[in-house]
Amino acid sequence: MKNMTQRILRRLSPVIYFAAACLSLLLPFSASADAPTVLVHLDVNKASPRAVEEQTSRRILADYRFAWTNLARAVETDTIEPVRGQFVGSAGKWVAETIAAQQKAGLTSRHINQNHKLTATFYAPEGDVMELHDDAQFHLQVLDGSKLIYDQPVVMHYIVLMTPGADRWVIRQLQSVEKF
């Protein structure tokens, strides 16, 4: 009986491999239909000259994750609404321009399985601005209409400036760099 089971499992194993492989490739597509997966890890130990308060740290973490979740939605649907109020100044300008340019070109993009390693490097003495470095990894897909023209895992480095807004920390600068 035991041998029989092993034989059946051995025969079925290619089928399982195939299913698993296809599933793993399809997962990103199914994930993009729902809320984008955004993982953020924040390290505030290197922040100076002011130490980051625990409450601020929690707020930054939540607001940065929220901003990227909505940014992914905005560039996937080519609508500015999801990011309204979360990106201000230069960051707000380029997000708006990005979406407008995508709309004009008929492009959309997907940021799938985002993983952000965020490090606070500067926290102003009065606590009114924080600079962070973000080592971001995600799967980037670019679509021209429904045609997939780019589909690659990417590693990006962002310099981020965040400032406290009325009820949350907002992203004022989000600038990708080659390296830190």
């Binding site: 300008k93 380029w94 321009e97 990005t98 340019a101 995508q102 004009k104 070109a105 008929g106 492009l107 993009s109 670019v142 021209d144 023209i149 780019y150 600038q175 990708s176």
Partner: peptide
């Protein structure tokens, strides 16, 4: 061919 340029604030086709 079709050329695309995608960057911060830019999407060209």
């Amino acid at each position: 061919a079709t050329f695309y340029l995608i960057g911060p604030g830019t999407s060209i086709k």
